[in-house]
């Protein structure tokens, strides 16, 4: 089998298994919970969402939000917010582009974990690689940038070298690639017939 055919086969299998996972109640619940939790975690990590016990209820929209929303934010692959929203216990800096990026990542992580759940719980499961999705979800979480420096360096108190900073810039795309690779890998560990997946897989 050539590389292209193998790629198509992986894609077909991953798609089929993913559909199967979403059609099952238990794995769909895992998918939904993980997607939501990861999205919240991502927004917290990049600083768009902050816990604020006495936030109250208010919203302040910036001037010219349509152009502002596509302006780059502090970090790589980060964009400006267009509204500051106080939601009783949290302050959310609403950036449509950041939210879209976060949602895309969260869906990938949710699928990864839903498939991992199936790989572990299926009778024929070998369990190998079930944790790859969790590991793959980490890079994007640490990609946030504060004013002058990556948040993770501030949190860990480590000194940032030029080499580290060079890697840092690519954390989010690396995270996406890892999540896609992990998804394809975990899909091979799930028995599609047990899910009633209709697509042909080999």
């Amino acid at each position: 089998m050539g590389a292209t055919a193998r790629g198509v086969s992986w894609l077909s299998r991953t798609t089929a298994v993913s559909r199967g996972a979403l059609s099952r109640r238990d794995s769909a619940v895992v998918f939904s919970l993980v997607t939501l939790v990861y999205l919240l975690g991502f927004l917290l990590a990049i600083g768009d969402l902050n816990v604020r016990p006495e936030a109250g209820l208010s919203m302040l929209v910036v001037d010219d939000p349509l152009s502002r929303m596509f302006e780059p934010g502090p970090g790589p692959f980060a964009y400006e917010g267009i509204a500051t929203i106080d939601l009783i216990v949290a302050r959310y800096l609403f950036s449509p582009v950041n939210l879209a990026i976060g949602l895309g990542l969260s869906l990938l992580v949710g699928l990864n974990l839903a498939l991992s759940y199936l790989a572990v719980t299926q009778p024929k499961s070998c369990g190998i690689g079930a944790g790859t999705g969790v590991l793959a979800s980490v890079p994007a979480l640490v990609s946030g940038t504060a004013c002058c420096a990556p948040v993770i360096f501030l949190v860990l108190g480590i000194q940032a070298s030029a080499a580290l900073l060079s890697v840092f810039v690519w954390l989010l795309p690396i995270g996406v690639l890892l999540l896609l690779g992990s998804l394809a890998y975990v899909a091979t560990k799930v028995d599609p017939t047990a899910l009633g997946a209709s697509s042909t897989v080999d």
């Binding site: 302006e71 780059p72 502090p74 940038t145 002058c148 420096a149 940032a160 900073l165 810039v169």
Partner: peptide, 9 residues
């Protein structure tokens, strides 16, 4: 050094 922030970021 880059601070990990784009120009005008």
């Amino acid at each position: 050094l880059s601070g990990g922030v784009s120009q005008d970021g």
